[in-house]
Design a protein around this nucleic acid. Structure first.
Ligand SMILES: [Zn+2]
Length: 277
DNA sequence: CGTATTTGACCTGCGC
DNA sequence: GCGCAGGTCAAATACG
């Protein structure tokens, strides 16, 4: 039986993005036709936590890291994470309710819905393919990174819908909440970016980052993101998993987040699992 | 010494 | 039934 899956796609130099959870690696396989191996992790935050995740790097664009979460956490996540969870939950609900009348659509094997959220440069896409329905939150950042708002603001997410009350949240998508989520994700992206840049400009002595005047901003954003990031990812997974997986279906949720997509070409449609790709 | 990672063996579902 | 591909286990190893 398949469980809900949350796939986060982001740019990262690090072998694994920090998501606030502890993971124990239990396997690694070479994806066929992909030079980059796929790593399997288990959550060790709590004993018996069924959550697993697998990390794989995009074959074409090594800078893109695909992290796929599966299962629901057995244990509470950090408070902030919960907040994020709420946010994301709302967002996901919105997605779901937007593409189809209800999450029931996800159970329908034939269903093929696609919803695009016109949120900045980010896109959320729900689509069903193959055996498992797929919710794809495609957040593709425009070429210009570090365009984020002031990094100072935390995420006092005005979430009104707790992660648990997913059924009710469906009716009120709370756009602002969603945008907030996206915002956080932006910061998240910022984090990845900054890492990118750091390692990038540490080789070239003078070659500053392409974005002038934003280094400090970057750092701040990165810092904020680092703080936020964990919550984001973990909560995201938790939230979506709970909403969808918590129902009766076992759809496949994919949050596709590509930051600093200088070339949107690398945004290949990741449907369920990066099989051969 | 306890715990995390590595890595090949093993298991299983699926297509031919 | 066989072979392949994707996942998982677990013994050995690395780490601190
Ligand atoms: Zn967990």
């Amino acid at each position: 039986m398949r469980k809900a899956r949350v796939s986060v796609r982001a740019r990262s130099e690090a072998p694994m993005i920090t998501d606030g959870c502890q993971w124990r690696k239990y396997g690694q396989k070479m994806a066929k036709g992909n030079p980059c191996p796929r790593a399997y992790y288990r959550c060790t935050m709590a004993v018996g936590c069924p959550v697993r995740k697998q990390v794989q790097r995009c074959a074409e664009d090594r800078t893109i890291l695909i992290t796929t979460y599966e299962g629901t956490h057995n244990h509470p996540l950090p408070p902030a994470a919960m907040a994020m969870a709420s946010t994301t939950s709302a967002a996901a609900n919105m997605l779901l309710s937007g593409s189809m009348s209800s999450a029931d659509g996800l159970m329908n094997p034939n269903f093929l819905a696609r919803t695009i959220l016109p949120c900045s440069s980010n896109m959320a896409t729900i689509s069903a393919s193959a055996p498992f329905p797929t919710v794809t939150l495609d957040l593709t950042h425009t070429p210009s990174p570090l365009q984020f708002q002031r990094p100072t603001s935390q995420f006092p997410v005005p979430f009104a819908a707790p992660a648990q009350s997913f059924p009710s949240a469906q009716t009120s998508p709370l756009p602002q909440v969603f945008s907030q989520a996206l915002y956080n994700q932006s910061k998240f992206s910022g984090l990845q970016l900054s890492q990118d840049m750091e390692s990038a400009h540490q080789a070239p002595p003078i070659l500053q980052q392409p974005q002038p005047a934003s280094l400090a901003d970057t750092v701040s954003a990165a810092t904020a993101a680092i703080t936020a990031d964990p919550n984001f990812t973990a909560a995201l997974a938790a939230a979506i998993t709970s909403i969808i997986g918590g129902g009766s279906a076992h759809p496949n949720t994919t949050i596709n987040s590509t930051a600093n997509a200088t070339n949107s070409s690398n945004t290949n449609k990741i449907s369920s699992f990066p099989t051969g790709n």
